[in-house]
């Protein structure tokens, strides 16, 4: 499929994946445009995390094709994969920090691996660029088990950004973190969006979605039921889409009005 090979978009074509006999991705086709931010929403177990992992090549698909940065993931060489990984980052839902390494080592390892011989001063410069003001100065030598879940999420978030990737996958980046830290992360994500990064983010956060989404993708039971520009999807007349978005958002937001207005950047829900 030459279209996928010539594009910087992330493309999924009729992707199938099942765990045991349970279909997790059931004929999923989607195109995530380069330089745009796509938010993936859906109820728990709808396949959001698996979609992200399939799109990033972390989970090999059983059927269909996945293209990332112009490469068909099933037919790339080791060298191409390594280069591809350097150009993309993944924020895991549970942090997935390396438990036997310190906080500093977790952030430094990707740099040491991709830039052999990189000097410690450069590593520290890059780390402090990301973590400046977050109060991690005295925690750099701690292991992940010695810091809070929220702190692990932040380290995981910035670990994914340490190589300055052009494509970033995020699985619930702002969950389990306090309000101030979530604000900092959202500011960073907005900055990434302004600098033209391609981002695919699974989240239940109305705030994050309304602030950064270009496109919205809605999933249910391993299928995409709606995918398009944010405002079009929010105003969708499909009862299933409205129901899912309302359900998903009502789990995280406390708002009495039309909850879908929280997603619409053009309306002020509190006016």
């Amino acid at each position: 499929m030459s279209e996928g090979k010539n594009s910087r978009d992330v493309i999924l074509q009729d992707v199938h994946l099942q765990f045991e006999d349970y279909p997790v991705l059931d004929g999923v086709s989607a195109r995530f445009p380069a330089g745009k931010t796509t938010i993936v929403m859906g109820p728990s177990g709808s396949g959001k995390s698996t979609l992200l992992k399939a799109a990033s090549g972390l989970v090999p698909v059983e059927g269909g094709k996945v293209f990332m940065l112009g490469k068909h993931l099933a037919s790339i060489t080791d060298r191409e994969e390594r280069e591809l990984r350097r150009r993309n980052g993944f924020v895991f839902q549970d942090g997935a920090l390396w438990q036997n390494l310190t906080v500093y080592q977790n952030l430094a390892l990707p740099l040491q691996f991709h830039f052999p011989g990189i000097v410690r001063a450069e590593i520290e410069r890059r780390i402090s660029h990301h973590l400046h003001g977050l109060g991690f100065d005295h925690q750099m030598n701690l292991r992940p088990a010695q810091i809070s879940i929220g702190e692990r999420k932040i380290i995981s978030f910035f670990r994914a950004l340490i190589l300055d990737p052009e494509l970033i996958f995020m699985d619930e980046p702002t969950s389990s973190v306090d309000h101030n830290t979530a604000d900092r992360m959202i500011r960073t994500i907005r900055h990434l969006r302004e600098s033209g990064k391609t981002m695919i983010i699974a989240t239940h956060s109305a705030e994050l979605t309304s602030l950064i989404a270009d496109d919205l993708l809605v999933m249910k039971a391993g299928k995409i039921i709606e995918h398009g520009p944010l405002q079009e999807v929010v105003r969708s007349t499909q009862p299933e889409v409205t129901e899912i978005l309302t359900d998903v958002l009502s789990q995280t937001a406390t708002y009495d009005g039309d909850i879908l207005k929280l997603l619409d950047p053009e309306t002020d829900p509190f006016s």
Binding site: S56, L84, N88, F90, P110, F113, S156
Partner: peptide, 8 residues
């Protein structure tokens, strides 16, 4: 998965 995601 985190190692693979990082290219390691």
């Amino acid at each position: 998965e985190a190692y693979i995601a990082t290219g390691i």
